[in-house]
Write a protein that binds this DNA or RNA. Structure first.
Lengths: 189, 189, 189, 189
DNA sequence: GATGAATGAGGCTTCATTCAT
DNA sequence: AATGAATGAAGCCTCATTCAT
C-alpha cells in the first residue's frame, strides 16, 4: 500500500498500474494480487485507510475545542496539518477518488447524494450559527468553499515548489474567520 | 471535439478512448486521427479552445468594470456563469488538465512554475490592495482559495443534483467580499 | 474461424487460446478481436456456423424421404456423412459445447430444458410410431441413444485410426432399424 | 479427492482449479500438493479410483451371470446403476478424460489404440456370437454404440431434470436385446 | 503434517497508432 | 476526405508450482 500511494502521488491514476506498483515495491504483480483481491480492493484499502486516519486525527483535534469558531479553525488547521505530514497519501486518495469509476461509469468513491465529509463541516458551521457566534450564510455552500480550499492544497504542494503550507493555513484561517463572521462576535464581546 | 468533450465529461479521462469518442461521433477512429495528429493533439485542442473562449468571456466582462471590488466580483461571476453555460466543456478540461501526463510522468497542462490563470487573479487582488480598496492579505494564497472555489463547482454540478449555481455564486461573492475587505472600505467611505 | 476450428479439433478447448489460434492463422491476437468482439463471440460464431450448415444438410436430406423408416435412416446417414466431410468442425463444436461455460458456471451452449436437436429426432421417431411403422418404445430415450451414437463418432475418428465411418454407419443403421422395429413392418408387408 | 470430484462435476474441467478445490475442502492449496505430486497426479488418482471401483462392481455383477444375453444386460444395468449412485464421480471422470492433455497436446487418458473398456464389452458381444446366442453384427462397432449410450447418461443427468435413469436403463436394455438378437434366440429355444 | 508467501507463464482484452486504399 | 485492417504494448487477472517455515 505504501508503494501504491507513492506511485499514485507521483504518476497519477493512469500511471499507477499494478506492474508499476509492484516494480516499485520490488515484488511481482502476483504478490499484490495475493494480498488484495484485485486492483479495486487495493485502491479501496488505500482510500479507507487514509480516510480513517485523517478522520481520527480531525475528531481528536475537534474534541479539544468548545467554541464554534475554534472548532472550525481546528478543523481547517488539522486538515492541512495532516496533509503536510501525509502529502503523498492525500494526493493518492484524491487521484483515486476523482478517477476511479465502476463498470457503470459512475464514480466509485464520490457519494452521489449526501457527502458525509461535507455534511460534517456543514454541521460545524450550523452549530456556530445556532449559538449566534456566526453570521448568516448558507452553510452548505460555505462548507463547499472551505472544503475546496482544503482539497486544492495537496495539488498545489506537487506543482508549486514555493507553496508554503504554513502561510496558506494562516490565510485560509483568516478567510474562514471573516466568512463566518467569528471576528465580529469576538468584537462585540 | 464536441463529442470528445461529452465523453470526457460523462465517462472521465480513462473512459475517453478514441474508440468511444469516435463511436459517439458516428465516425471511425481513423477520422479523428486524420484531423488531429494524435490523441494528445485532440485533448490539447479541447483545452485551448475552451480556455480561449473562457478567457475571452472573462476579459470582456472585466473591461466593463473599474473598481477592484467590482472587477473581482465580475471575475467570479463570469467564471461561474461560463461554467453554467458550458458545464461539460469545463468538466472535460478539468479531466484533461488533472490527468494528462507526458511521457516523463509530469502533468502536461499544469504549469509547473508560474500559473498564468492564477497570476491573473492574483494581480486583480494586488490592484485592489494597491488602491487601498482591499485589506492586507497574501494575494497569492487568497487567489488560490478563490480559484479552488471556482474550480470545484464543475464537479459539484455532476454529483450533487441539489447544487444550485446561482446560490453558490452569491455565497462565494459574499465570501470574497469579506475576505478582501471590500465591504469595510465601502463602509468607511 | 477455420484456424480456430483446427486448433480446437487438435488441441482441445483448453489448448485453443487466442494466441494459439492467431499464431496458426499467422496473424496477431488483436486481429481476431478486431473481427470478433471477444473469444465468446468467436466460439459462438463457430458453433452457429457449423450447426447451421449441418442442420441445412440434414433438412435437405430428410426432404427427399417420405416413410418414417427412411427418414430416420437418412437422418443417421446424413449426420455421419456430414461428420465425415467436416470432422474437424464437428470435433470443434463438440469441444466448445461441452466445455464453454458462462460466468455463472453453467454450460453456455447446452440447452437446459428442451434440446431442439434432440426434440427433432424425437419427433421423427414419434411420427413413425403414429403411422404404425415403428414399434412401441420411449421416443425420448431412444432419441438420446441414437444421438449419443452419432455424437461419439467424431471422438472415435480422432483416437481410433481403425475406425471406419462407413462400417459404423452401416452398423448403426441396422441397430436403429431393429430398435425402431422397422424390420417387422417390412415383414408384415 | 472427494472435493475435486464435486468441483469437476459442477464446474467442469476449466473450473476445477486447485484453488477452487482447496477452497471447497476448506484447506489450503499447499495441502493438495502435499498429498499429490501435482494436479495431474490428483486427476489421475480420481480417474483410477473411480474406474477401479466401477470395474470391480461390473466384474462382480458379471460373475453372477452365465448366458451371454444376461451378461450384456448385467453389464448395461450395472454401469447405469453405478452411475446412479456415483453420478458426480462419473461426471468428474468424463470431464477429466475428455479434457486432460499432456504437454504434447494429446489426450492423457484416452487410449490411443486399444481401449480396454471397449475391448471388454466387445468380447462379451463376441462370446454371444460364438455361442450362437447373438445374431451377426460387427462387435467392435456395436460395442461403441452401446458404450456411447452408457457414457452419455451422466451428461443427461446434469442438464435434463426429467431424465429418469430407470426408464433409460429399460429402454437401452431393450435396444441392446434387439440389436444383439438375443430375443429371437430365446424365442427359437 | 501443513501452510503462507511468492512467482512466472499465460489468458483475455483495450488502446493508440500506422498503413494501404 | 475517409476508412478498414492490422498491430504491439500494456493492463488486470488466474493458475500451477516452488520454497521456507
Amino acid at each position: 500500500m505504501k508503494c501504491a500511494i507513492e506511485v499514485l502521488a507521483e504518476s497519477g491514476y493512469s500511471g499507477a498500474s499494478l506492474a508499476e506498483i509492484a516494480r516499485r515495491a520490488g515484488i511481482s504483480k502476483s504478490v499484490v494480487l495475493y494480498y488484495f483481491s484485485g486492483k479495486d480492493d487495493l485502491l479501496s484499502s488505500v482510500v479507507f485507510d487514509v480516510y480513517g486516519r485523517a478522520g481520527q486525527a480531525i475528531a481528536e483535534a475537534l474534541s479539544h475545542e468548545t467554541s464554534p469558531g475554534e472548532k472550525i479553525a481546528a478543523y481547517v488547521r488539522t486538515n492541512l496539518h495532516f496533509l503536510e505530514e501525509h502529502a503523498a497519501e492525500i494526493r493518492a486518495v484524491v487521484e483515486i477518488v476523482s478517477n476511479a469509476r465502476g463498470a457503470d461509469g459512475t464514480h466509485s468513491f464520490v457519494p452521489q447524494g449526501e457527502d458525509p465529509v461535507l455534511a460534517h463541516l456543514e454541521e460545524l458551521l450550523r452549530e456556530g450559527q445556532g449559538s449566534g457566534d456566526f453570521r448568516e450564510f448558507d452553510a452548505h455552500y460555505l462548507a463547499i468553499i472551505i472544503r475546496s480550499a482544503i482539497d486544492t492544497a495537496s495539488g498545489r504542494l506537487v506543482v508549486d515548489p514555493s507553496f508554503y503550507l504554513g502561510a496558506y493555513t494562516r490565510e485560509l484561517l483568516s478567510v474562514v474567520e471573516l466568512a463566518t463572521g467569528t471576528h465580529r462576535t469576538e468584537d462585540s464581546s
